[in-house]
Structures are given as structure tokens and as C-alpha cells.
Amino acid sequence: MIDFHVHKPSEGGEGGRYDSRPYTAADYVAVMDELGIDVSVVFTLDGLWHPSPAENDRVAAWVAEAPDRLVAFGTVDPRLPDAAAETERCLGELGMRGLKFHPWIQAFCPHEACMDPIAEVAAAHGAPILFHDGTPPYSTPLQIAALARRHPDVPMVLGHGGLQDHWREAIAAVTGTPNLWICLCGTPNAGMRAVVARCPSQRLLFGTDAGLGAAVSQPFAAERIAEVEQLEIEEEVRAAMLDGNARALLRLEEQVG
């Protein structure tokens, strides 16, 4: 199983959230073993509020503790003049496999022009860009689809499958945008069923959002895994969503996994 939505725990301190206590990658890999997760795609948490090269370095270092089990995504402030250069550093020098953005926290709209140079770097590396989605004003699925349509060579991912209120819109966005993928993560069960029934099965992904919890054990991630395992769908589709699709998108066979 590949968990396509995991956060490195917050470093805590003044800029931290959720009273998150930092834990090591090794400790989290032990939790992954218990949860039955083979590979996790890891984003920053602190860096959503304070994106910086230093935080990208920390994510890369955290993941480097277990390179066969953890895959790193970077983030940048898209309005900074060096955003494209830092994107290039993430995907090149740091060996990250993609990018994660949380537009309403990072204060931009997904289809703003400042995302274009970043998407061009991602295209050159064949790297996907994942977005938080499901929340107005600046994280709606069709806003992300608008960017994806400008960059048909870049796979883009709805990181939350529309959440509670936008999963119907997410289905419309994904079915109308060939390079847009959808990660079920916090989508309500009725929405999960509809997404699986109506979206192309080769572009379905699954994620837990682990890392938001204060303790390494992540009880809510276990809950989300139980929910997707019990979801009444074809086993072939479940296998693709939980494993094969993510491997293809991350091109895992080429390097790790």
C-alpha cells in the first residue's frame, strides 16, 4: 500500500501546530509496518505556513533516513522570485519526487500565473504536483483543474478528493482533465463511492494525512485505512488505487520501493 498524503511532523515550537511532537522517520516507519503501508509520500507541515529551502532540506533529510519507504515532496512560496529555482533544487539536487501546495494556507489561487514557472520545472522532471483541495476560496477542484489544463504534461493531484463539499466538483474536474488525479483522503464515504464509480480508475490514489496527530501512532490514519479497506468496490480497482497507480505516478520501480 502506498499512502500518498503524509506530513513530516511539525518541529513544534512557536511556528508549530497541533502541539505536534516531532518523531523520527524510523519511528514512523515502524507505524507504517503496523498499518500495512509500504511507502509514504511525505510533505512538510511547518513549511505550509513558512516555506523555505531550510524546511525542504529538513524534509529531504527526514526521508533520507528510510529512502526505500519514504518519498519526499517539496514546497515553495510561488510568489517569490526564486520559486522556480528552489523547485529545481527540490526535484534535482534534493531528489524529491514531486511538489505539494496548500493554496489557502499559502495564500494564492492555484491557477495564478505565478504557478506557471513552477509547473514548467515539474514538467521537465516529470514530477507531479499535489494540492490541498475541497475548500473555498482558493482550493477548489476546478481551480486546480484550470492550472492542470494549462500544463497538460504535468500530473496534478487533488490531495483530498474534494473533502465534504466539493467531491462532485472533483469528479467533474478529474473526468474533464486527463492529467488530473484524485487522492481519496478525508472524502466522506458517499463521496469515495461516487469518485471510484465515476473517475478513471487509473487516476485514483489514496492517502491518510498522517502527521497531523500529536503522537507517532496516528490513530486517525488507521481509521482511514480501515475505511478504504472496507469500501465496497472491485478488488482490482482497490489494488490500483492503493498501490499500482501511485507506483506509476511516482515511477517508483525506477529507483525505490
Binding site: P188, N189, A190, E223, A226, E227, Q230, L231
Partner: peptide, 10 residues
């Protein structure tokens, strides 16, 4: 029926 009731209860 919007949820997974077994998960909610557990």
C-alpha cells in the same frame, strides 16, 4: 448513509 458507520462507531 453518508459515512462508514462501522468506522464512526469503532
Amino acid at each position: 448513509p453518508n459515512s462508514a458507520p462501522a468506522i464512526e462507531r469503532a
